[in-house]
Nucleic acid binder design. Structure first.
Lengths: 199, 199
DNA sequence: TCTGGTATTGAACGTATGTTCAGTTAAAAT
DNA sequence: ATTTTAACTGAACATACGTTCAATACCAGA
């Protein structure tokens, strides 16, 4: 049944997910109890079950939301074309997007083991889809001769690991701004796959 | 008190650490109970406390052992000299070492949040020491003009993340052997920091 | 065979967990 | 003012946790 804007129910659901996101990222899925999440929202533990069937679903939905968001954002950003420009665009996009959502990134990469098998399969599929998008760029660039890489799958995994790693050390207000970081990482990603002779 | 070789006590301690390593890596520190570790060793939970003061120390010691081992192995391998050759050596070493100990790597990078503050500080120090070793190579290469990198700290973090990421996808008996993988990663790491004009 | 001491058990302690649900509150609908 | 409905509480359930410790099993040395 549709309800009026601003009803309590429409506010509490997101607040629960936000609290879970923060706590899971900071302390880990297994270390955070439903009672702690409830306390963060200002509610009793039982009330959470009006918004999620169980703790597992809470984790799964946070991951799925994040991976869907990454995918959709890249689909909107990708313009195709020259592989070199496209890879640079991908790297900048990935850095920017991940720096904006460090908590979701953390969870999506660290809590995979806490997913039940069926949920794990879904999340792995979403991850694979994104990784394949990068690999397709690399394949394209190898065909045009812009990239010199023996194995596109390995190169895709290496680049994603390098870029995603930014969330482990970057802190707001530090020596480098986000734009600087994106710039430098894009250069390193390109350098890692470019042939010695340039494009 | 020194005891004879092969006594039960000298065997059980390592067996507990081995079981903890395997279980922590597979399911996470918080998700593994002392009773499960004990069962894996074939002993009751109470017996574990003859070999470790508590669960936290078990985690801390596994991490410390690993990071000490990485450090010592690299100290033995490093020959100094030309930054390009030295970085290539570092990359090959890092890949090889990490592929041989995927479980310890996993724990050392994923269970940091489950360390108590004092233990965390120690582990972070050991990690920093290793990262600084890489950064020193990069600084050296920037001075000689071999590397073109705006920020050596960032570049060190990026390279380590890229290399360490190998453990997330590499599986024994797959398409590529360890030597192939080390070779390719070393090439990518060098490419990421080399200037456009070569050495 | 007896003795000394180490290795281990098994039960217990207090606390925390995820989840359920009968009952209460509060607000919207009539 | 009365009914309906959704939101939430608070207590309870069964189970599991890390850790301790008196009691026991085991084995080397005498």
């Amino acid at each position: 049944m549709a309800r009026k804007t601003g009803s309590h129910a429409e506010i509490t659901g997101p607040r629960i997910r936000a609290a879970a996101l923060r706590l899971f990222a900071a302390e880990g899925f297994a270390a955070v109890s439903m009672r702690r999440i409830a306390a963060e929202v200002g509610v009793q533990a039982g009330a959470l079950y009006l918004y999620t069937p169980d703790k597992q679903s809470l984790l799964f939905e946070l991951m799925k939301e994040h991976l869907d968001a990454v995918w959709e954002a890249w689909q909107a950003e990708d313009e195709g074309g020259d592989p070199v420009a496209r890879l640079e665009r991908f790297a900048r996009f990935h850095i920017r997007f991940h720096l904006e959502r460090p908590e979701a990134v953390f969870i999506a990469y660290m809590e995979l083991r806490n997913l039940e098998p069926e949920n794990f399969a879904v999340i792995e599929g979403l991850r694979g889809r994104y990784e394949t998008a990068l690999e397709d760029i690399l394949k394209d660039g190898r065909e045009t001769g812009a990239f010199d890489i023996p194995d596109t799958k390995l190169a895709a995994m290496a680049i994603i690991a390098m870029l995603t790693g930014v969330t482990t050390w970057y802190r707001e207000g530090g020596r480098l701004g986000r734009a600087d970081v994106a710039e430098i990482y894009a250069g390193m990603a390109l350098g890692a796959v470019r042939g010695r002779t340039g494009a």
